[in-house]
Design a protein around this nucleic acid. Sequence first.
DNA 1: CGGCTCATTGACCAACGTCAATGCCGGTGG
DNA 2: CCACCGGCATTGACGTTGGTCAATGAGCCG
Lengths: 252, 252
Amino acid sequence: MRTRSLISKLEQFTELSAVEKQALEDSTGDIREFAAKEDIIEQGDSPDDLHLLVEGWASRYKILADGTRQIMAYLIPGDLCDVHVTLLERMDHSIGALSPCKVLFIPRHRLANLMRKHENVSRALWWSTLVDEAILREWLVNIGRRRADKRLGHLICEMLLRARAVGLTDDGTFEMPLTQEELADTMGMTPQHMNRCFQMLRAERLISTRGKLVTIHELEKLVSFSDFDPLYLHQEGNRVAVGRNPRAPDAA
Amino acid sequence: MRTRSLISKLEQFTELSAVEKQALEDSTGDIREFAAKEDIIEQGDSPDDLHLLVEGWASRYKILADGTRQIMAYLIPGDLCDVHVTLLERMDHSIGALSPCKVLFIPRHRLANLMRKHENVSRALWWSTLVDEAILREWLVNIGRRRADKRLGHLICEMLLRARAVGLTDDGTFEMPLTQEELADTMGMTPQHMNRCFQMLRAERLISTRGKLVTIHELEKLVSFSDFDPLYLHQEGNRVAVGRNPRAPDAA
DNA sequence: CGGCTCATTGACCAACGTCAATGCCGGTGG
DNA sequence: CCACCGGCATTGACGTTGGTCAATGAGCCG
């Protein structure tokens, strides 16, 4: 099942029948691999296929005139890169692999068929784009109104819940294949300051790291430290979910 | 024509036939007025009608636990407040009037009919939500990566172009019915600092203000000062548009 | 004339950026 | 096996942007 993680995510919104799942699976095309730092889609492209991230992490980003970068979204397995772009002639930003990635290509016409035949799948896909937008809004809040250390805490909470929804967590620990520089470019700061933030969170015993593995010792403490409210993720049973794992990790 | 500004905006994306325009107009319901600072939609609501802003400015915002506010979008005439919410059970943020507003209510079932019958209108409406999302991404870039004074300059450029698209500008001047505090809550700073930013832009002769009227003396200077690239607004003939008025202001 | 909201000012301070090293670690060629 | 290299993490000193606090003014309205 190459669409396992997508389905796992969509089922947070609505139950899908076996037929629907199969139809989704049957709509998929090739899988292509991308190396870390490679672009999956570049600004100016107008891709013919929908891109589904199956493995690895990627980012939506823009490069400014002065060469600085702003990352506007993280994509993890189960996330779609460009559900919509058909309507805008060209991408106004790029999507790049943050770690080695596997990307599933879904020809647009097959997607269109799928969505026409399966109302339920169609709604679930739209739901996922609405959640993406909600996440974007929350990032704006995060950058606009929270201090650097809380900002990092907030992001870590979010990524834990998102990773959990696609079965990529092991209790309070998950892999976050990002450099501190990438995180800095996400949260509007410098790598040096990002580093200081990590040290604060570690000193407060809110998180610890080993390589790219992050572990959150007591999610509730980090949640309240970071003023995190999972409502915006629109995950079913959200509030309950902060505390335990709502679904058994999928078998690999 | 109560949908004049919406149509004016949509026609940046595609020409609409007289029949389509009429169908859009016929789908509308009541108009309601809101006073400045009044909420049009509150967090937690799940509205039955689509809300189209016809007059005045409104904002999408969230209030944080510590009482601070983050504004995540400005809505001006022609903008839709909640094209989608049907799919998410409840609003994860509020929409409030910034100035006295007139809001046109469009019953969801009529909208659904309209979109079913008129593919072209449907596409135009989706296009407008995609543009909203693109704007949101650009705001993230703005807050994340630009210094306070450029941030303000960037926003002013954007609002000029958006206002122009719905016939609300008079050359380089337009009404921006916002307090400095609201602007500060938009761009992640304090009102005091926002005030300093205004003074910088005025000192550089990039803008001047009289009451709520803002005038941009030479758009090109402000554009380059603010590192503004109108691509993200996905307005037809964008690049040309920075400089002259692409359409004659609609007769009132 | 108060009383309100909003704009403006100035002194001071903290968060965060800048600059310039240094350390760490995994990978690679010899 | 080991020296070296390159990318990333970390550190410290110091500078700047923007926040805080506390007034003062300016315009509007009953």
